[in-house]
Amino acid sequence: MFLRNFLIDARYAQIAVLFTLIALGITVFNFDIPVWHAGGVLCAALIMQALCARLVHVPFDWRSPVITAASLTLLLRTDHPGWSLLAGGLAIASKFVLRVNGKHIFNPANFAIAALALGASGVWISPGQWGAAGWFAISLAALGLIVTGKAKRWDVSLMYLGSFAAILIGRALWYGDPLAIPFHQLQSGSLLIFAFFMISDPMTTPDARPARLIHAVLTAAVGAFIVFDFYRADGVILALILTAPLVPILDRFFPADRARWRASKEPQYA
């Protein structure tokens, strides 16, 4: 039964990969992830999912809050458990509240990170934490997900990375910089995690492939603009918050079947 679920629901593979990355981060890359942070976001995400599911009368599903919590554990850093709890809660709540046409607008973890990184002094992301070896590990994991068909929206991930790389390389050529600089900038673990676990979220990407590709290019351009003109290291993540509201508009111009984690006619709160 579990194996069948694992094969039909891509979220199991995502959970496995995210937890492997957390374990690698702690053991090999010495990430400073306090137990209260990991526990805080997980508890808050699960409790908020349970509460909201009851309010809108849908069955409780543990998988997507676990994915959200794992993303927050990997990307977000806080100086107080209160912020961690707030991040977990805010992420899931956004999924139930901020909806258009039966689809949530923001990727839950992206929403929480952007809201808190802009508003709270005790919350930050550490884009430099992976280094080149970590980048390699995430690339392997991402490649694994694509090959096994568990990355449903790999088109978005690759289009995003391709356009971001093109912008960085173009910028280096314009400035006369050696190509070592854009290649170094692309070797960011946080960039890969964003590309494979956040912008590619099937629930918040446009339904049709052309729309998804347009959205990916736009998000890459806005991200590069924030990083290089506003000097914000978290620009890549903030960009998605700005481009996510365009998804309902893109969906109108490019209608297609809605993504579903599993065959079901219920509204998806995943």
Binding site: F29, N30, G128, Q185
Partner: peptide
């Protein structure tokens, strides 16, 4: 901390 290089202790 550095945002474009790792910070190790």
């Amino acid at each position: 901390e550095s945002t474009n290089y790792r910070t190790a202790k």
